[in-house]
Simulated scan of single mutants.
Amino acid sequence: MAAILVCNTSGILPEIQSTVRKPVAANMRKALVMQYTIGLAIYYGISVAGYWAYGASVSEYLPEELSGPTWAKVLINSTAFLQSIMSQHMFVAPIHEALDTKFQRLNEGMFSKYNLICRFFVRSIFFGLNILVTALFPFMGDFVNLFGSFTLFPLTFVFPSMIFLKIKGNAARTEQKLWHMAIIVFSSLMSIITTAAAVRLIISNTKMYHFFADT
Rank of each mutant, 00 (worst) to 15 (best):
Ala93Arg: 04
Gly50Ala: 10
Thr19Lys: 13
Thr215His: 08
Val6Met: 14
Ile42Leu: 01
Arg29Glu: 09
Leu146Ser: 06
Leu116His: 00
Thr19Asp: 12
Leu178Glu: 10
Gly68Gln: 04
Leu152Cys: 02
Leu146Asp: 04
Glu60Cys: 00
Leu82Arg: 02
Asn107His: 12
Thr101Ile: 11
Gly45Ile: 06
Glu108Met: 11
Ala172Asn: 14
Ile192Ala: 14
Glu97Arg: 15
Phe159His: 06
Ala172His: 13
Val122Lys: 02
Tyr44Leu: 05
Ile38Glu: 00
Ala31Pro: 07
Leu5Glu: 04
Arg29Val: 03
Met162Ala: 10
Ile42Gln: 00
Tyr36Phe: 14
Ala172Arg: 11
Arg105Cys: 03
Ser18Phe: 05
Ala41Ile: 03
Gly50Val: 02
Tyr36Thr: 01
Ile203Leu: 15
Lys73His: 14
Ile184Ser: 11
Gly128Leu: 13
Ala135His: 03
Tyr51Lys: 09
Phe121Thr: 15
Pro160Leu: 05
Asn77Met: 08
Lys166Ile: 08
Ser57Cys: 01
Tyr114Asn: 12
Leu116Thr: 12
Trp52Phe: 11
Ile85Trp: 13
Ser191Ile: 05
Met181Lys: 12
Arg200Cys: 08
Glu175Asp: 15
Tyr209Trp: 09
Leu106Phe: 00
Lys113Tyr: 05
Ile202Leu: 11
Leu99Gly: 10
Pro63Met: 06
Asn205Ser: 14
Ala213Arg: 01
Gly55Met: 10
Ser87Leu: 08
Gln176Lys: 11
Phe137Ser: 01
Leu201Arg: 12
Ser47Tyr: 05
Ala31Ser: 14
Ala198Val: 10
Thr194Phe: 13
Tyr51Thr: 02
Pro154Leu: 07
Thr79Gln: 00
Ala72Glu: 02
Lys168Gln: 14
Thr9Trp: 10
Tyr36Pro: 09
Lys168His: 13
Glu65Tyr: 00
Val92Gly: 03
Ala26Arg: 07
Arg119Ser: 15
Tyr36Leu: 04
Leu40Gly: 00
Ile163His: 03
Pro69Val: 05
Met140Asp: 05
Cys118Asn: 13
Leu5His: 00
Thr194Trp: 04
Gly128Val: 01
Leu165Thr: 07
Pro154His: 07
Arg123Ser: 15
Ala25Met: 14
Tyr114Asp: 14
Ala3Gly: 03
Met1Pro: 13
Lys73Thr: 12
Ala53Asp: 05
Arg119Ile: 08
Phe211Met: 12
Ser47Phe: 06
Gln176Trp: 07
Ile16Val: 12
Gly50His: 00
Ile184His: 09
Thr79Phe: 05
Ala80Phe: 14
Ser78Phe: 06
Val92Trp: 01
Tyr114Leu: 11
